[in-house]
Nucleic acid binder design. Structure first.
Lengths: 215, 215, 215, 215
DNA sequence: TATGAATGAGGATTCATTCAT
DNA sequence: TATGAATGAATCCTCATTCAT
């Protein structure tokens, strides 16, 4: 996103310091989100907690939104990487149910690390202003999921791979967040994962094929 | 403390006027949400569009949030009423799949009326400040769904009725909203309803029972 | 102050009802002052506690200030009446110190009934807008005190009766209020009265004359 | 939490600028009080006259009240400093009456500089919200006065040093303010000082001792 | 007379952002 | 580059007062 290119020899340590500052700012923001709310994450407050001045904050981020966007992008990247990793070619032999479980569990891990952050990212993701970025991310996710589904085409219930990917992804994402935020009794993380895996597998995959390794 | 003395006969026309004002304010708010965003729904702006003064607005609503809360409450009530209606006793004979479809379709209708409103309500529902109200609503929904599921207990895949109700409701709600906001190609309303019904029925109900009327 | 004169036969019961309303409003105001503060004594709030509508309140008082003014006037009247009573001709024979003590004690009684009210009246009395009314009251008080002093001219230390009356009155008034508001340890009401009597007597009256009945 | 890193050398000119701004705001406030009233000393107006923006005002003062509090504190400090100065050890040899006169005159000087300011401070001092601060100041004054009285214990009429200090201070303070605000005829500043010195000396000190230097 | 919904000017406060040092 | 004082548009909200019913 922020690509500066000054071809001086000090480039590296300088870049390293810049990255440290950026990270401090992002972490400070998350800290505020966790303890309080997005409303209290003012630029002044973020800078204060990050241990820098507002001026410095604005050296590294175009404006306040850019900070939240950076967080969003970072989580997007992490989520996608995880999914690509699990659904990659080399896992071709694994049974569909196992694959789904790995993805759901991976997602749960990401969300669990900072539910407050994901609460805010969900809110931001719903903002009209962010529609495009979020949509783009969704497309990338759908793409990965679709890739996986196409590999297992023979076991799918439905032909509409695109729609199925969309529905499955949204269901998992939203239910997981709601569960982490509301913590409904009797639905601990393990039970949640089981339910979501059931949901997805039954929705997507023919009964007999779920637990069979793909041929 | 506040001793109202005479419930005068003029009370009714006065109340009617008050209700009309309240409605005007709510509708004005929705109108702004639809055309623009929650950020632009300032108290001044709402009052202006509603054709009243800010003072009047504050005469009827504690503060700005109270307006959005009122909208939320109104939608909560509508959604619950619809569900209770569909899942009521007198529909006992209907096949489960049919029942699910009616609920999903009913929900879709509500959402379709004003996706922008539901976008905002979803955002508001994620705010920490509203956690309690939203949670309370979720519990009421879960309750209705659970009631339905218990009636059909024999056809259920799982015993964990509570968890199943939660997962099913969150999945439908979130996917429907995402779909209305992103309008993914190839997923028109009809297709969406079909996918969601498939999702829920396969998740909840034993294969053979879905299309049979309950005995 | 508010002199209405409608020469109808229903005049009396009507006036009685009006006076009851006025009293209810004044008492409601005092109640708010006592429990909270002048800031919270809004017209709406006063009306509510008085058990009438704002409209009714405005039927009886020109504007909000008129309410506080009425309270001020009422206390002015009470204080003056008390002083005139004590310092009246028929007490001519009493020793000066005794007279002073009666006045101080009378004042203390008034203040003690509602320190919060007198706190507010003191504040209002300092407002530029009220300068004239307060000044007029002070003149009336000074007048009464001066009358007393002139009677006892022979025992006075100073010839500047006017100045002495002013200083004595302000000292007693302010110290009494401060004492009631701050309640300094070791200065209960009885001690306060003694100190103030000492203060005034020593200030005004020749040593040998204080405890002698006037000849 | 707030980790200030480098107390850079530019800190001083920056601090000087900040102090200048604060002073400008305080002086602007006084100017409004003098010409008009506290009600007209709105934050916008103060900022305007101080030649800064509202934002800057809020950069230096928590809220509107903080400005008046700062003025109060400043006057408190000045008054205390003056009293401590006059009543300090090195003036031990001075006659009591002379000491009292110096204090009264010093106070008169402070009040005369800006009666309007002291009118407002008196009002603010009566506010419930400020009770604690005012009380604390009173205690400090009482303390200084008591220190003085204890030095002259042999000449005092009363043993209740605490009560005497309280009564004397409140009397002087209030009478002086009332006199400056009402300007009663025949009581110019010189006459006022004389009356107050008489009041205090006769109240506190044994007749024969007032004009003798302390042994 | 009583009622209370409606008014709207006006005030306090916030906070993203800039820029001189 | 870093700093943090300064900016000021924008927002929420209050409350004395009016007036149609």
């Amino acid at each position: 996103m922020s690509s500066r290119r000054t071809k001086t020899p000090e480039n590296k340590p300088r870049q390293a310091r810049a990255q440290a500052t950026i990270d401090a700012i992002l972490e400070a923001t998350i800290r505020i989100l966790e303890r309080e709310s997005l409303d209290l994450a003012t630029t002044t407050r973020i800078a204060e907690i990050a241990g820098v001045s507002v001026g410095t904050l604005y050296h590294h981020f175009e404006d306040r939104d850019a900070i939240v966007n950076a967080l969003q992008e970072r989580e997007f990247t992490r989520a996608l990487a995880m999914m690509q990793d699990v659904l990659s070619q080399e896992n071709l032999g694994t049974a569909p149910r196992e694959m789904v479980e790995r993805v759901v569990r991976g997602l749960a891990k990401l969300y669990e690390t900072s539910p407050a952050l994901h609460r805010v990212l969900a809110i931001e993701g719903l903002r009209v202003a962010n529609a495009e970025r979020v949509h783009a991310f969704d497309l990338r996710v759908i793409d990965v999921v679709r890739g996986f589904l196409l590999q297992s085409r023979e076991h799918l219930r439905s032909d509409d791979v695109e729609a199925a990917a969309f529905v499955a992804y949204q269901s998992v994402r939203a239910t997981m967040l709601a569960s982490l935020l509301e913590r409904p009794p009797g639905l601990d993380l393990e039970a949640l994962v089981k339910q979501l895996v059931d949901l997805v597998v039954r929705y997507l995959i023919r009964d007999d094929a779920a637990t069979q390794p793909k041929s």
